[in-house]
Structure formats: C-alpha cells, structure tokens
Amino acid sequence: MRIATGILIAVGLVLAAAAEAHHAFATEFDADRPVALRGKVTKVELINPHSWIHIEVVGEDGTATTWMIEGGSPNALVRRGITRDSIPVGVELIVNGYQARDGTNRAVGRDMLFADGRPLFFEGTQVSE
C-alpha cells in the first residue's frame, strides 16, 4: 500500500548511506566561524548537487556585502511544488550557519528562515503538495 504523499514518515532506523558522506563540509566550512546573517535575496540557484541562495547583507556602516548560502538538492522540493519563483528576489532571509574556511562570504545555511520566523520552503508540521 502506498502512503499518500503529504505525510512525512518517521522511522527509527538510520539509513546506512548516511555514512556515505557526500561532502567534506567540515573542510569547506568552519565550525569555529558561526554566522548569523540577515539580508535580502539577490539570486536563487536551486541546483545540484547543492542549492545556493545569495543574499545582500547590509552592515552597520551601511556597506552591502553579498553572501552565498549553501543548501540542499532541490529535487525533492520540485516534487512538492517549489518553483523558481518560490523565493522572490528581494525577500528578506535570516540565516544561521557557518562561514567558509577560506574566509570568503560563503556559508552553509544551518537554518534559513523568512523574516517572520517561518522556515524556508516549508511551514508547519506537514509538507503540503
């Protein structure tokens, strides 16, 4: 029996392939460089192997810096109706993550939220179709 889509399913079993680490994230990004960023979206790359969302962060002195924030593959999002218009340019995001080890303005987005606190892409407890 197929489970209706729209309900995420919990299973206590860890998939063996979690050990197949795609990525040396800890080499790319620095656990000792946490960042909390707030900025307006300038570009959205919903691509593989990882998505990248570009935001413009305005510092206290008024200078604007563009940050690239790394996320996940968009393939499951596509199946849930996410399109290229789902994150409009100009919308404000809050990003908690870790900065690139080489000190450039890149970060992996541990959590990405809209300014009102909603998580990026999904809100609430169920995935909507």
């Binding site: 995420l8 992996v108 987005g109 998580p119 892409f121 995935v127």
Partner: peptide
Amino acid sequence: DVHYNLDQFALGANEG
C-alpha cells in the same frame, strides 16, 4: 552541525 538542514529541503525523510 556544519551542514545544511535536510528537512528544509524535504531531504531528511523518505519523501513519504
């Protein structure tokens, strides 16, 4: 902790 949030991209489970 240095990883994107799988659930935000609906990748953390088996897609139902």
